[in-house]
């Protein structure tokens, strides 16, 4: 592949994405959240409250000009906390998906390319991981590692990588019959070099699509773990934790659980829609098939 074709492909991709209004909207939401979370300490009204400083005399103030999203049970500005929470959630999403890809994809490609016993061993291991319901498996892992945001991320990554291993293996199996791979083999390129120099770049498209869509699942799963008390711990402004704490106040002080819940919803939806569009754009086959997978 040379530079020219790549940029041409990219151009087509961008054009297609631009034409897709839903994709643009979701991209806009994602970009918004990313920018907001990067500059969180500079744009939130009350940075110290966002990080957890209580203001006991301002508990449960309804949304107002001063506190657009109201205040929570310790008097902290909910808007500031939701924005700080975006940092955590996006980071968790990216971390979990990246770790899962880093572990899963090489294993899948190796299994697919070399086949035989290597394939058998690696795939049976992934099968073992896949045979547990993933959230339950994550809960069990966190329970042994101890509750905490980092442990929650680790356990989610561990439950997530087998999906990528499978995906990458399927890709490797098809691609390894391509003439350019055969050509590399003929001129004596080593197996692992072929896997990482030639297989990997060509197998990336479906993995990126899957990764984008999994961002939303990872964010949701982590929020779920925090909700049941196994993920982020107070006073972290993690969204799931905020919803969990605010749950019992829903009837009287709705703003406390509703805004973080809304944030989870928006981000998860945006990643999901964007992943969908990306798949349609990058994969002509599924575009024709009307978006089924």
């Amino acid at each position: 592949m040379n530079k020219l074709t790549l940029s041409k492909e990219t151009k087509i991709t961008l054009k297609l994405i631009k034409r897709d209004k839903l994709a643009m909207l979701s991209l806009l939401i994602i970009t918004f959240f990313i920018i907001v979370s990067i500059f969180a300490p500079f744009i939130v009204p009350y940075p110290s409250q966002g990080e957890g400083l209580p203001v006991p005399e301002k508990r449960f103030l309804p949304p107002s000009f001063e506190n657009p999203f109201g205040t929570d049970y310790l008097g902290r500005d909910v808007l500031s906390r939701v924005i700080f929470g975006a940092r955590i959630s996006l980071f968790v999403g990216i971390f979990v998906v990246c770790v899962a890809i880093i572990i899963g994809v090489p294993l899948g490609l190796i299994a697919g390319y070399f086949g035989g016993k290597v394939d058998d061993v690696l795939m049976r291991i992934t099968d073992v991981f896949l045979s547990f319901p993933s959230l339950l498996f994550a809960i069990a892992l966190v329970a042994t590692l101890g509750p905490g945001l980092f442990n929650a991320m680790i356990s989610l990554s561990i439950t997530w990588w087998p999906w990528y291993a499978r995906l990458a293996r399927a890709q490797a199996v098809t691609i390894k019959e391509q003439p350019y791979i055969l050509a590399s083999q003929v001129i004596g390129v080593k197996g692992l070099t072929i896997v990482f120099r030639h297989l990997l770049p060509n197998a990336l498209t479906p993995i990126i699509v899957q990764g984008t869509m999994d961002m939303s699942s990872a964010i949701l799963a982590e929020a779920g773990l925090s909700f049941i008390g196994l993920g982020a711990q107070a006073p972290s402004p993690e969204w799931g934790l905020m919803v969990s704490t605010g749950r019992i106040y829903l009837l009287n002080y709705w703003w406390f659980p509703v805004f973080p819940g809304l944030a989870i919803f928006l981000v998860a939806l945006a990643f999901n829609l964007f992943g969908d569009s990306l798949r349609d754009v990058l994969d002509p086959k599924s575009r024709k098939a009307g978006g089924q997978m």
């Binding site: 209580p54 310790l74 107070a234």
Partner: peptide, 10 residues
């Protein structure tokens, strides 16, 4: 207890 703990932490 939770609220007391969080206030005390600060």
């Amino acid at each position: 207890e939770k609220q007391v703990a969080e206030l005390y932490k600060a």
